[in-house]
Design a binder for these strands. Structure first.
Lengths: 96, 96
DNA sequence: ATCTCAACCGATATATAGATCGGGAAGAGA
DNA sequence: TCTCTTCCCGATCTATATATCGGTTGAGAT
């Protein structure tokens, strides 16, 4: 858990939105063809007019901070919140 | 429901095996990455040393006879038995 | 003003599932 | 033997999700 990397990852509203959306997948990604238990696949985040390449970069940032778990299934990458890292980071932050 | 096409489709052991395997997906395709409720995807049938192109042709034969339902999700095609056609065909056969 | 860095985009690359094509082999029947 | 059909394979094509690259822009720091 690298605080610096995590804080940089959180330093963008879109990436914070991604984490928020992933709290309630059934609410925000109901139209996904795959069952949501698999996670939410990357293309679902192409919102707010962001280009695919930009979304990909944001998701990579979140993943490298370990704030999300990724699971590749063929051509798709499914994302879930990594509650473990998030909770640990919150604990660490409480000492700020 | 075209009897001729159905009978031709059934006239190969591999294709009959596919229908049999699809009766119990959880037994025969437990290792599939996708949930089995989506169906069984084509590559799962690459068994018995058959090449991908051969499997694809067999599945197309079953599909054109309407013995299986197909659902494409991105790069995958998921297969399920079409119980409706199968039952209707069995009824028709009982008049043979 | 300059430097840096994050963000953005379009274009291109990578990877993979499945479909299709061309050709060869085997069996049935005339 | 000739023909027709079915099967099989390797090779190639198509489609699509995601990653990466190159270049531009704008904000903040010095």
């Amino acid at each position: 858990m690298d605080h610096d990397i995590i804080l940089k990852a959180l330093a963008h509203p879109f990436r914070r939105d991604v984490l928020a959306w992933l709290k309630e997948p059934e609410r925000h990604f109901a139209e996904q063809a795959h069952p949501l238990e698999m996670g939410v696949c990357a293309s679902q985040f192409e919102r707010r007019g962001l280009a695919q390449s930009s979304v990909s970069a944001h998701l990579a940032t979140l993943a490298s901070a370990d704030l999300v778990n990724t699971r590749r299934v063929g051509q798709w990458v499914f994302y879930k919140r990594n509650e473990e890292t998030i909770a640990a980071f919150q604990v660490a932050l409480s000492d700020l």
